[in-house]
Design a binder for these strands. Structure first.
Length: 262
DNA sequence: CGGGCCTCCTGGTAGC
DNA sequence: TGCTACCAGGAGGCCC
């Protein structure tokens, strides 16, 4: 699930339920997921502290601790956050749970154990360490900069969109959506697009991501014209009703409409 | 540099 | 019903 819009949803949830609540303790059931420090080290950092703010960059979520430093969360393919109150049922298979002093809990769930939990002094350290490009929804990320950066690419547009060091936050689902909204087939080469077309890709990218972020706040209001909820072997195009096709790109299954994305 | 393939993992499901 | 193979919204490493 977790691409930029999903992580933005987790962030909104964190802002509503996770801030200004002193931490009583941390339980880690999957120590493999803890990086840069140990489960114990992480526990020491969190104990008796509260989170004051969150920050998101691409698919990474940061939660600022009031004693300095930030909790770093990456969700892999299957991760999510679940807040639950005293006496409420915890989610199954939580990889880590933060207990708040008021009796509430925050669970980090990662069914396939492909996510990461870490601690950092500053988000910039992670951004540099992971070689992340600008966040796909950062305000200063203009069409001009986007077009210039993409124009240097020799590979496929879908690969470039999913390349976190070029632009951070887009994965398989939303790269497919962007290609669909642009009317471009999955194997389109960046070099086949002129700068006007690249600027269009940028504006579609922003529109798609913004729409998806908004849809996460007002549940399931992703427009019916989106490919998103149709993607499967027997899915049909939301525009022209043609049968969708699929092809492997960068090792991922890409769904597309052979008629609209000719 | 970029594409293709493999790997890390677990769980759901199509197909036999 | 039970088993297996394969696939899944991420990402890094390796080889060509």
């Amino acid at each position: 699930m977790p691409e930029l819009p999903d992580v933005a949803g987790f962030q909104a949830r964190f802002d509503r339920h996770g801030l200004r609540r002193p931490v009583a303790g941390l339980h880690v059931d999957e120590p493999r997921l803890v990086r840069e420090t140990s489960a114990q080290g992480l526990g020491r950092r969190l104990k008796d502290r509260a989170f004051t703010a969150t920050h998101r960059h691409g698919k990474f979520l940061f939660a600022q601790g009031d004693g300095g430093g930030l909790l770093v969360l990456h969700f892999g393919m299957t991760g999510y956050l679940a807040f639950y109150g005293e006496g409420e049922e915890p989610p199954e298979k939580a990889a880590a749970v933060i207990d708040f002093r008021d009796g509430g809990h925050l669970a980090y769930v990662s069914l396939r154990l492909l996510g990461r939990i870490a601690w950092t002094a500053a988000p910039e350290d992670v951004i540099q360490g992971e070689k992340l490009g600008p966040d796909a929804l950062d305000a200063w990320w203009t069409a001009e900069q986007f077009a210039q950066r993409f124009a240097e690419r020799r590979g496929m547009l879908k690969s470039a969109l999913m390349n976190q060091s070029l632009i951070a936050g887009i994965g398989n689902i939303y790269s497919d959506e962007i290609l669909f909204q642009c009317g471009l087939p999955p194997k389109t080469k960046v070099q086949a697009l002129d700068s006007d077309r690249l600027r269009e890709v940028q504006s579609v990218t922003r529109r798609v991501l913004r729409t998806a972020v908004r849809a996460h706040q007002a549940p399931h209001s992703i427009p019916r014209t989106y490919l998103l909820h149709r993607r499967s072997e027997d899915g049909t195009c939301p525009r022209c009703n043609a049968d969708l096709a699929s092809v492997k790109v960068s090792g991922r299954t890409s769904y597309y409409c052979p008629r609209c994305q000719g």
